[in-house]
């Protein structure tokens, strides 16, 4: 058991937590917007946000490379002005993880926001509150379980991503090698002990997360009744 390199574990958590933070910042307002508006454009946007779920991870990774690679205009701009490189860096891993996990954040929160009656919002409006204030004091507190479920789901999705991350940030040991990639790498190298430990860690996290989400959803249903 000696010489187990825990760097992938550390990197994975760092990447997944940062990516979840981004999912929260982008996904929450997006979910609220999608839950309150109706129309063809909104439907289209809704479909678009679900795309990362159905697209093969490698396809998604390819798009990200095209969009953010050193040859692309965005990639060039970031490199020239801020000295930020995305491809083959941990930053790239964060972006890849965020893109694959945002849909889960949006989906779960959107359903929860949908359940918040328009009457509560109207009541708060007539009690003198602005929209942002209402979002923070009424909508999120009422829908928090759905938001929490979305947050957990997007965290595990970010933690477990393999294909997209591999495409964007590669598998440089001690730099961009996350846990799922390390498992593959260990197996390739015939290091079964290492693979077993990493697999055990990932499985434990998955079980805990599933349990949490289930109990959140059960309580949510109870509260609706």
């Amino acid at each position: 058991m000696e010489g187990i390199n825990l760097f992938p574990l550390y990197l994975s958590f760092r990447v997944a937590l940062t990516a979840t933070l981004f999912s929260l910042l982008i996904g929450l307002p997006a979910a609220y917007f999608l839950s309150r508006k109706r129309g063809k454009v909104v439907d289209l946007l809704d479909t678009f946000t679900n795309l990362p779920i159905v697209l093969p991870p490698t396809v998604l990774g390819y798009y990200l490379l095209v969009l953010l690679g050193r040859q692309s205009s965005i990639g060039k701009f970031l490199e020239d002005n801020f000295d930020i490189m995305i491809v083959f860096t941990p930053t790239g891993a964060v972006i890849a993880a965020a893109v694959v996990s945002i849909p889960y954040m949006i989906k779960s929160s959107k359903t929860a926001f949908h359940e918040v009656s328009e009457d509560y919002l109207n009541a708060a409006r007539l009690l003198g509150r602005g929209e942002l204030n209402i979002f923070c004091t009424i909508v999120v507190p009422i829908a928090w379980r759905g938001v929490a479920a979305g947050l957990t789901l997007s965290f595990v999705r970010a933690l477990g991503d393999f294909g997209t991350t591999l495409m964007v940030s590669g598998s440089i040991p001690n730099k961009t090698m996350t846990m799922p990639i390390a498992i593959y790498d260990a197996l390739q190298a015939g290091d079964k002990g290492m693979a077993n430990i990493l697999v055990l860690i990932m499985t434990t996290i998955a079980v805990v997360v599933l349990f949490t989400i289930n109990s959140l959803e059960r309580k949510m249903k109870k509260e609706v009744k």
Partner: peptide, 20 residues
Amino acid sequence: VLPRNRNIGYVFQNSALFPH
């Protein structure tokens, strides 16, 4: 004028008390 600045009180059919 925005609803919040109209100074109008509204009691809803189902009371719309904030459940939390």
